[in-house]
Simulated scan of single mutants.
Amino acid sequence: MVVIVGQCNHRNDEVTKLKLKCQSRLALLRKVARGSVGSSVPVLRTLYISVIRSIIDYSASNLITLSRQKRQSLEVLQNEAMRIISECLRTAKIETIRHEIGLPTLAQRIKAVATNQIVKSLNTADDGIFKQAVMNPKGKDKCNKWLNSARELLSTINVSDYLDNNQYVVPELPPWDFPEINVSFSDLTYRKSDVPIEMLRQDFLRRFSALPQSASVLYTDGYLQGNGRAGAGVALYQDGILQESGSLAIRASNHCSTTQTELLGISAALTIAKSELGGVTIVSDSMSALQSIVSESSGSNKLVNRI
């Protein structure tokens, strides 16, 4: 990888060229998806990753200084690709589609790839100039925008573990995609059907107040109707206010178990939690789902493994 520090004055042109390249290849993805034979979601996902996202991966280290507006313009490209892959209507929430396809946001992907590229450069730079500029900046290097962004990325990992060790590669999913998760629950001393709703509410508030306080709270629930229709829902509250952008509803396979629907809701909540800053509390009323998450004998369950 070659990085020219201090000569990044044409970010607008670079982003425009990236978008043009990606948009031309979106036409190919659309043609394959709508062909007479048709392709499955895994095939279309692989095509997107190898033909379209790979262009952005190649430029990841040069994109870490992009403004939020420019990053969002690239995110729109992936959103369009996900709609093509899933064949969802425009009314479908993009977070729901992303969860179903299993793709990180481009912002997360750029961070992951750029971190790998920077660490690789630090390990292979023979003259030590690049390493000196990043790790021990002096003079104008302290004010360089790209170097500051690179140092900010490296601060999210224990960089000393990755230097001078070419056999150790930064994980594809970066540390910021793996928040620490603590699962806690306790048995009820009564049956929910035997007590008034207000008593259930008071009991929940008492238990909830004992948890570490978080600005963001995700409530999950699953449902299984009498006709076999199943699904799950997630509601995001920030500082006690419902956030429509972080709330979604997901359809599950008909006639699946209630535990599966509850696990689907928890899995979707974790996807949303990745984009939130600070601690996030996820609330579920399913004892069976929570027990399956912490159980060592649930390894064959795909949803549990995803969580």
Rank of each mutant, 00 (worst) to 15 (best):
S186D: 05
S257G: 07
D194M: 08
L122A: 08
V234N: 03
K120G: 03
L63Y: 01
N166L: 15
G38S: 07
G299Y: 03
V159S: 01
S209H: 08
T258I: 15
L28E: 05
A268I: 10
V159W: 02
Q291V: 04
N144V: 01
L74H: 07
V169H: 06
A107N: 12
S121F: 02
Q260P: 00
D203V: 04
L188G: 05
K111Y: 06
G231Y: 05
Q23N: 14
A81S: 12
G102N: 05
Y219W: 10
R53W: 08
R191D: 04
S121T: 11
F208Q: 08
A215G: 13
T65M: 13
S73A: 10
Y162H: 06
N9D: 08
Q260Y: 08
G240M: 04
M1K: 10
K142T: 15
D285K: 12
R25A: 02
H255A: 09
N136A: 06
R25M: 06
N116H: 08
T220M: 14
I129P: 01
L224V: 13
R306F: 13
C143R: 12
S292T: 13
Q291L: 11
E14N: 10
Q117W: 00
T46I: 01
L211R: 12
Q23S: 11
Y48P: 05
P174A: 09
G226I: 04
Y237A: 02
A114I: 06
A249Q: 02
K19N: 00
S247Q: 09
G231V: 07
K21V: 01
V32N: 00
N116V: 02
D13G: 00
E296D: 11
K17S: 14
T105S: 15
P196I: 03
S73F: 06
Q167Y: 12
T91V: 11
L264W: 01
R109L: 10
K302I: 04
A133K: 15
V170N: 03
I266Q: 14
N148L: 15
G102A: 05
M82Y: 01
T96W: 00
S184R: 11
L103N: 00
W176R: 15
V15A: 13
N136F: 11
N254P: 05
T16H: 12
S300L: 07
E276P: 00
G38M: 08
L28M: 07
